[in-house]
Structure formats: structure tokens, C-alpha cells
Design a protein around this nucleic acid. Sequence first.
DNA 1: AGAACACTTGCGGGCTTCCGCAGTTTCTCT
DNA 2: AGAGAAACTGCGGAAGCCCGCAAGTGTTCT
Lengths: 241, 241
Amino acid sequence: MKVLLVEDDQFHASYLQDALAEALPEVTEMLHATDGAAGEAEARDARIEAVVMDLQMDGRNGIEAARAIWAERPGTRILFWSNYSDEAYLRGISRIVPEDSAYGYVLKTATRERLKLALRAVLLEGQIMVDREIHRLQRRSASPRNALDDSEYAVLLDLALGLQDKLIAERRGMSLRTVQNRLLSLYDKLGVDGEEIGPALNKRVKALSRAFTTRTLNVETLESAQRDYERWLAGRARSVH
Amino acid sequence: MKVLLVEDDQFHASYLQDALAEALPEVTEMLHATDGAAGEAEARDARIEAVVMDLQMDGRNGIEAARAIWAERPGTRILFWSNYSDEAYLRGISRIVPEDSAYGYVLKTATRERLKLALRAVLLEGQIMVDREIHRLQRRSASPRNALDDSEYAVLLDLALGLQDKLIAERRGMSLRTVQNRLLSLYDKLGVDGEEIGPALNKRVKALSRAFTTRTLNVETLESAQRDYERWLAGRARSVH
DNA sequence: AGAACACTTGCGGGCTTCCGCAGTTTCTCT
DNA sequence: AGAGAAACTGCGGAAGCCCGCAAGTGTTCT
């Protein structure tokens, strides 16, 4: 059995290697990549079927790498292992997991035993295993009060990029007023006006600010949204001539 | 000689302990705290004069802890050891270093030899030692093109919190128009309009967005600015009755 | 089928923001 | 001290944003 580790921090990588060797004696070959792009290449070349993936890496991050790997071989088993319980990362993952594939999510603060358990369960048995703390987060983000549905999330990304209402309307195919309605519910859900007694705020900016502090958004997500936007812009320019 | 380690990641902490033992046999006592608040208390109680401090920690971060420690005993020698080369952290540090105290900054990606060198140089010899990569960043941030001066930075923080022009003017004691001038130069320096051919943007939001992607700002800085703002608000309410 | 509810859209008004123009103050040289 | 540069300030207008109101469309119950 071959396993690929994708992890850019050397201490964490060597800890992982030890734990993996202990947990899975059936591993015959252990590959190691230190960023998402190298991980993708490695997975393709070596026809890897089991991966342990860090999420937060310089350059190409774990989510993007996982998406690329699953696009080629949806059966690949991936265990995500990360410090970060950011909602932004979770949202990214739940969006790309193929229906029938095995994956797991373990926090780096988990005990060695729990890590080893997850390694066996996901990589060997093909189970799905999500750390309890993560699960709690996902539940919270799915609770009616704070859940952003996909279209609100899309508008949030556009807002974060600095697009004006009219442009968002064009990009998302909604009327101006509908965009503004979405913004209103965003302000509500992000708690922009929430019980603060203070003076009036610039809601647009405050919404972005809260999206960051509540980990609904993070820098990587923002950068990837920017790339999407530029691609769309290029397409639009072509179609308008 | 007593040394205090403040580091919340267990792998990094144990690596640090090893390196410290190798580099400084004269250390007789090694204390360990896992967050900023505990680090402060430990430093005070044990009358610590040498600290190795992680910057990025949950709860109270390294910058705030260092400020508190230096406020009590400016002679304390502090070596910052961190993954993060964010400008936001650097700006924080250069603001609080007492004129005559010894400090250093080493990246976690540095070799063991370089770390040991920095440990000896800063903690034992009281030298100042800054990783070359960090130094490069500081220089860039001091270059005329992108440098935000203190008052621009203050306005950026207020903007990020969602304050409106009028409120910023009140808080910072400037006229409304001056605040707007600051904003204009912020937009310029953050490249809000920079050679992008795309449609017009919401500059306020885009400025915040760019501040994040260029690492001028990060979530911790934002949260601490929010606390400052709330304190100011409370004071203002009292003085107005 | 009909009632209740949610979502979308246009209109309009009050407010904020961006920014050019021009006068005044403050800083910085020689 | 005096000249020139840089920063600060008020005014005013165009554009964008926030949002209440009301009419239209679609969905889900009973």
C-alpha cells in the first residue's frame, strides 16, 4: 500500500510519518510532498489511492489539490489533517467531496491515538471520519440562524472582491434589487447590526470584516475568488467585444 | 539562567526545547507556557529575563504578550519564533520594541543551526538578530511606494472596523475632509485602482480586501483593533453622558 | 382550488462616499 | 526670515448604497 503525505511543515510531517508507520504496518511506500501542486503531480504519477493532506500551505492549498486529485480519481481516500477549524476551509471541503469517496478530517491537536485511528479508518477501511469538533462547526454553520446559502455566499464573495451592486447583479444574473436583498440578509446573518449600541457603520465593510473574524472567509478563499472573477471578466470582455 | 518558552504547538515546542538545550548549556531552568496570557504571568512570577515567543497563538497572541512583558521589565530579551512573515505582525513588533532592549526574529523554516545561533545571540549576548527574509519584508514595507505611515494605518484600522468617515474624524481628531484624503492615499498605496482595466469597484471594501491579501492586515490585528475601538467607545459614552 | 408564505423586482428618498477645486495652515529648506 | 512644498480644510455635486413600500410570481400547505 502506498500513501502520499502532503504537508509543508517539517515537524508535523515527521510526526505524521511516525504515526503512520505505527498505525499502518501494511504501508509499503510513503511519499511526501510539501505543497499542493507537488502533491497533485505525485498523486497522478504514482497512482496514489491514499493521501494525508494538510490544508493550510503556501502556494496551492490542500482544498485545491484535493479537488484536482478527486477530479482525476474520485476513489482516492483523503484524510485532511489541519490546525484550522475555519469555516471557510470546511465549506470548501464539503463542496468538493465526491458522493461515494472516503475522506476524513482530523485536527492536529487530536491525540496520537485518534490520529492513528483515523488513518486506519479512512485510508485502509475507506470509512468517513470527521473530528467531533469539526462536526460541531459544520452543524453550527448549517444551523438556520447563521447559515449562508450558496447564493448568499456567492454574493459575499463578490462583495469581498469590491464589486458594486450592479456588477454583482450582472455576474449572478439577478436584478439590482435582489442583490440588495441578498446583502440585507447577509448583514443580518453576519450580525452587522447585531445588538451593538454603537454609531452607524459602513455595512459593506463591516460585513467583510465580520466574515473574516467569524472565519466564514479567509485569505486563501478570497484569492481564489479573485482568480474566478478575473476569469469571468475575461470571458465577459470577449463576449461583448 | 532561566528561559521561558511560549508556544502553543506541541511539536514546535519540543523541537525548541531540544535546540535550546543544545545551544545553551548554561540554561538551568526551562519554563513553558502555551499561550500569551500564561506567558505573561509566568514571566512576571519567575522574573524571567529571556523568552522565546511564538507569535501566532490562540487567545492572547505573542505581540500583546511581549508588549505586556516589556512594559514591566524593558530589559527582557525576547526571541520571536514564527511561521508568519505577515507584515501585520512585523508592524506590531517594531511598534513595541523598547529602544535599548534585545530581541530577535527567526522563522520556523530556518535551519536548526540558525535557530541555535539566534538563541545564543539574543538570549545570552543580548544582541539584535533579525532573519534576513524578515528584514527584506521590513524594508519593502518601509519603501516609499507601499509604506503606510502611522496615521494612514490608524485610518485603515478604523475603515476595517466599518466606521464611517465622520466617526473616524471624531476618533482621530481630524476633519472629515482630511480623513477622506487619508483614504485616497490608502487606496493609492493599496493599489485599489492599480492598472486594473475592470469595472469600477467599491473602493472601501476593495481596500480592506487588498489589505488582507497583501498581509498588511490579519484577523488577529483586526480583533485587537476591535477591542481598542470598543474601549474608546465606552470612554466616549462616559464623557458625553 | 384557495390561502399563506417566500422570493423577486421597480420606485423613490435619505444618507454616505468619492473627489475636484480653492483657500489656509504647517512644515522644510536655504 | 522667506519661499516653496505638503498637508489640512470647507464646499458642492455626481454616484453609490440602504431600505421601506407595494406589486408580481412561484411554492407549499390544507
